[in-house]
Simulated scan of single mutants.
Amino acid sequence: MNLAIRFRFHHPERMPQSGAFVLAPNHYSEIDPVVMGIVSWKLGRAPRFLAKASLFKVPVAGWLLRKSGQIPVDRAGSKSHAALRAAEELVEKGRMVVVYPEGSLTRDPGLWPMRGKTGAVRIALERDIPIIPAAHWGTQALMPRYGKKLSLFPRKTIDVAIGEPLDLSAYRGKPLDQATLIKATSELMEAIAGLLAELRGEPAPAERWNPSAHSQKETGRFEG
């Protein structure tokens, strides 16, 4: 697949070359984990993913995720807890872990990041490690949102931006209650949206898409 993709990196020097950290990218295609896995390798780090369990059932992407030792997240309580502990074990070994803070493919009609979940920020704060926002654009030409088939030809170009570490100094050492985690996650999503705006050359929406504020009927209208 690597030969079918041309990557253009923006700020690749921001990718830490040693130590544990969380990489938090945007998510709008089922093939995103494979793409970000290649990106991580190209930028000098071996990727490990905390990805929703359903991705492991996607052709090509699922096989690659299983073979490379990634971590499936089942939304059932005990299994989700086990996945977080597995991610923390990677952190203890000084490895990077890729966590999609949106939790699933964005439902924003324009493919902008939607409101995030708190898992990525929680790992970073609990383990006192950096969280690096990231964004990519162009993956939708390789596999569209909710698509299952790859389009490898003609060759696709994917732009990738690596952000500065999110400043979590205001939250470190404080109780990690839900309000704190939500606020920190909101800042993370703003940083990811800003990187994506840079890649797309257009401003991001003023607010992140909130799936809970839209009915299934409204969401279906945008998802085709």
Rank of each mutant, 00 (worst) to 15 (best):
Lys174Met: 12
Ser215Glu: 14
Ala141Ser: 08
Glu223His: 11
Met1Ile: 03
Glu198Met: 02
Pro175Val: 06
Leu168Glu: 04
Leu65Arg: 05
Leu125Pro: 03
Arg48Cys: 13
Ile71Asp: 07
Glu88Phe: 00
Ile182Gly: 10
Gln216Tyr: 15
Pro33Leu: 06
Pro165Trp: 00
Tyr100Met: 02
Lys67Ser: 12
Gly37Ile: 14
Leu50Arg: 15
Arg145Phe: 03
Ile131Glu: 01
Asp128Val: 15
Glu126Thr: 06
Glu92Met: 13
Leu196Trp: 01
Ser68Pro: 02
Thr106Ile: 13
Ala83Gln: 13
Val22Asp: 03
Asp177Cys: 12
His136Lys: 05
Pro72Ser: 11
Met114Phe: 05
Gly69Pro: 08
Met36Gly: 07
Ser68Asp: 04
Phe153His: 15
Lys42Glu: 15
Thr180Ala: 11
Met1Trp: 07
Gly119Pro: 03
Trp41Asn: 12
Arg14Trp: 00
Pro109Ser: 06
Thr106Lys: 09
Glu30Tyr: 15
Gly116Glu: 09
Met114Glu: 15
Gly138Phe: 03
Asp167Ile: 14
His11Gln: 09
Ser212Lys: 10
Thr106Gly: 13
Ile123Ser: 03
Leu199Asp: 07
Ala4Ser: 06
Glu164Asp: 09
Asn2Cys: 07
Ser80Tyr: 07
Pro165Ile: 05
Pro109Thr: 07
Lys57Ser: 05
Gly69Tyr: 10
Pro47Arg: 14
Lys52Met: 00
Ala135Phe: 00
Val91Cys: 10
Ala53Ser: 09
Gly110Asn: 02
Val97Gly: 05
Thr219Ile: 09
Gly116Asp: 08
Arg95Glu: 12
Ala161Glu: 01
Ser29Arg: 09
Arg6Gln: 09
Asn2Phe: 15
Ala206Ile: 05
Ala197Asn: 11
Arg221Thr: 04
Leu111Ala: 06
Gly62Cys: 05
Phe49Val: 02
Leu90Lys: 13
Arg122Gly: 02
Tyr171Gly: 09
Arg221Ala: 12
Gly194Ala: 12
Ser68Cys: 05
Arg172Ile: 10
Ser29Gln: 07
Asn210Pro: 00
Glu198Pro: 00
Phe21Asn: 06
Val60Glu: 05
Ala53Phe: 04
Leu55Lys: 06
Gly37Phe: 02
Gly77Trp: 11
Ala170Thr: 11
Val99Trp: 01
Ala213Arg: 08
Thr139Tyr: 00
Asp167Asn: 05
Glu13Ala: 02
Val97Arg: 00
Glu202Cys: 12
Ala83Leu: 03
Thr185Gly: 12
Arg172Lys: 15
Met96Asn: 07
Val39Cys: 05
Phe9Gly: 13
Asp177Thr: 01
Glu218Tyr: 08
Pro175Met: 14
Met96Val: 08
Arg75Lys: 13
Pro25Asp: 12
Pro101Ser: 05
